[in-house]
């Protein structure tokens, strides 16, 4: 709940700031809450950012502790549980947890088989990881926005403690996964078609002429087009998930600001939050599924060798 000292803007900003641990450069002037210079750093210092301004000043050499904590924690949580179930899995009549896992695995396996017709044992486990992990991270969005930050503020004794619980509302997380998928695409393309195959794919496509001197002219155009098409894949992958989750989180925060505005608005906000959460379940699942399916499709394109023939 928004504290009385906090304005609505401050409340929203507070909810959108990650707990950032990073390096502040030497000579940086740290401000206290009232805006006065509170400390001037004599050297590069690794520390927790006390405001979003400080977090921004840290630049690239910083890490979002809350995002990493939740994403790795949730990843370990489901994988350790899955591994335990899988280890005890038997071919008899499946029960309870094994049933659930088999349902998920069967669903993923079917999706992978539909979209990916090559031989690669890594694709299905990757799809399983992507789907379950993103689904879990997105589901954190359904936890009322103030519960965990308020709890953390109580634990640390710092009412301004930043703590974002939905890792997928952090573009670092979604783009990190997007670029990893991109890296794997490049890797598998080169592994399947050779480095020259990769270069050819980038330069002799989509425009191609049987005359070599025309081709030379076409290479830069092709390269420009292909480079955009390649680089747009991880970015769209990451930003789609981020955008959806960020927007959803934003609406939850906006609804939460109404809780402090009297009984009638408070009840109205409660109803709205419930309705938005119900709708959001769809978004959560859909975004996890879309990310997985697109990854499978990209992996399938990377493995596709036949198309190369037309470049000869």
């Amino acid at each position: 709940m928004a504290g009385e000292s906090q304005s609505t803007v401050g409340y929203i900003q507070h909810h959108l700031t990650n707990l950032t641990y990073g390096k502040l450069p030497a000579g940086y002037e740290r401000l206290d809450e009232s805006g006065h210079v509170h400390e001037v750093l004599s050297q590069d210092t690794w520390t927790l950012a006390h405001s979003s301004v400080e977090a921004a000043a840290m630049g690239f050499m910083a890490i979002h502790v809350d995002s990493m904590l939740w994403s790795i924690g949730l990843g370990f949580l489901f994988l350790v549980i899955f591994a335990r179930i899988a280890k005890r899995a038997h071919s008899g009549v499946p029960r309870g947890a094994q049933n659930l896992l088999e349902m998920i695995v069967g669903f993923i396996d079917q999706t992978v088989k539909d979209g990916f017709h090559h031989k690669n044992a890594m694709i299905a486990p990757m799809a399983l990881t992507i789907f379950t992990w993103i689904l879990l991270m997105n589901t954190m969005d359904l936890v009322p926005v103030d519960w965990i930050p308020a709890f953390m503020a109580w634990v640390t004794g710092n009412p301004h403690f930043f703590f974002k619980v939905v890792p997928t509302t952090d573009p670092n997380v979604t783009l990190g996964m997007g670029f990893t998928v991109f890296g794997l695409m490049v890797y598998f393309t080169i592994a399947k078609k050779g480095f020259m195959g990769f270069v050819k794919e980038l330069t002799l496509h989509p425009f191609h002429s049987p005359k070599w001197y025309v081709n030379i002219l076409l290479v830069p155009i092709n390269f420009a087009l292909e480079a955009i098409s390649w680089i747009s894949k991880p970015i769209s992958l990451g930003l789609r998930l981020f955008g959806n989750m960020y927007a959803g989180e934003m609406i939850f925060i906006l609804i939460a600001t109404m809780f402090g505005a009297g009984l009638v608005l408070g009840i109205f906000a409660g109803v709205l939050q419930w309705a938005w959460a119900v709708f959001h379940i769809l978004v959560i699942t859909l975004q996890a599924f879309v990310f997985m399916v697109l990854t499978i499709v990209y992996m399938a394109t990377a493995h596709q060798v036949e198309e190369e023939d037309q470049f000869h």
């Binding site: 990650n18 890490i63 995002s67 994988l79 044992a121 990757m126 990881t129 997380v173 783009l175």
Partner: peptide, 25 residues
């Protein structure tokens, strides 16, 4: 802000993929 979290997430992603390949799938 884009920062080291991106790389951290990439590494954990690859690790989890390997983990699920090795111990689950």
């Amino acid at each position: 802000n884009i920062n080291l979290t991106l790389i951290g997430q990439s590494i954990s992603f690859l690790f989890f993929v390997w983990f699920s390949y090795k111990f689950v799938w």
